[in-house]
Design a protein around this nucleic acid. Structure first.
Lengths: 194, 194
DNA sequence: CTAAAAAGTTAATCTATATTAACTATTTTT
DNA sequence: AAAAATAGTTAATATAGATTAACTTTTTAG
């Protein structure tokens, strides 16, 4: 495997010198997960941030009744992790599980600290991607307040057409915060409308 | 007014030299807003990030039906702004309005870019505070999925007892994503339970 | 290839919360 | 201090979405 997808991604935000890129590469690990495997488990301290080369993950919270609530999916060229747990090295609120066989690049907490010290440009890089993630998290809160289930589904479909195709429907229902039964109903209503 | 509250806050994350602190101070502006005034309006490009010295603001989204949805309150020692609009300099999704007379420190977009270049330590500082904000935004998504209205209210009460005292009840209802009538009902139920 | 498990659908009933409306209490303005 | 405006409450009715259960379709494993 090669680190090119990650380097390309970083280069959209900051320009690394060849030396910096080599140091970065020396600090990352390639890893393959099988479908079903966990990258992070609720309660663990999240030790790494992951950049997905291929595959798909879901980040979800398991509530007191054993119900899964998916808060985001991640695919190629996205980061995945429990950010809150990673940055504060406290126990994770979320699970991150592979829903396809997944190849990714892992950066551990200690290595990321070292990387940030040696390549201060990466502070800027990570700041910018967290800003983006934060803005989209806030937009999601708005949507859950101001759109009903059907409207939220139509938004999801439009924003992430590729994800809709590759994940089971019951996970989309979970992402939308509704039951699979009600999701079924919405889809059949929409099918009639066209 | 003085910049000490901001300097104290920053020093919890990174240590500024005296020279850096002076440069920072040269780039900030003190400003007073009256209750009711807007710091950012939906549709504007958000030109500044604000650190609150005293007072209280609400950040809300006005939907197509003219309904307000409060996504967060901010008080002394908190930052407020439309982060998504500020960082990408695109039009804001949110309004930020003062709900008390409010004194704050403003940093404009251009000045913040300059500050980040001259004091790279601040990249680290802003990265860390955005990470914190992102983590709490994700936790809010979880709560809205896994707790009912009464449970969310109890959580809010416990987390932000001081905010509960100082803002009108109908704004708390909006923050919780419920109507003021249903919020009233919840409170009277809780009153009976004790 | 078949059996078992997992995923998805449909319909009936139930519930948390919204809506409407009428009323009371509090704050602001004159 | 009265009038007007804003904020908060209560109760009746309505609705989006949950729950339960029975069923069909698709995927996985032996």
């Amino acid at each position: 495997m090669n680190a090119q997808p990650l380097l390309n991604y970083i280069n959209k935000y900051v320009s690394l010198t060849e030396e910096e890129a080599l140091f970065l590469i020396s600090k990352i690990t390639f890893r393959k997960y099988l479908k079903g495997q966990y990258i992070v488990q609720q309660g663990d301290i999240c030790k790494k941030q992951c950049f997905i080369i291929s595959g798909c993950t879901k980040t979800f919270y398991m509530d007191a009744n054993g119900q899964e609530h998916i808060i985001l999916f991640a695919i190629e060229d996205w980061w995945t992790s429990d950010m809150g747990s990673f940055t504060t090295q406290t126990s994770a609120d979320f699970n991150v599980q592979c829903i396809e066989n997944t190849e990714l690049i892992e950066i551990t907490y200690d290595d990321s600290e070292e990387l940030l010290l040696k390549i201060p440009k990466l502070e800027r890089f990570f700041r910018k991607i967290v800003e983006k993630a934060y803005a989209s998290s806030q937009k999601r809160i708005i949507r859950s307040f101001s759109l009903n289930a059907k409207e939220q589904y139509l938004y999801f479909k439009e924003q992430y057409p590729s994800i809709e195709q590759r994940v089971p429907q019951y996970m989309i229902a979970s992402y939308l915060g509704i039951t699979k039964e009600f999701f079924s109903k919405i889809k059949s209503q929409l099918a009639i409308e066209d």
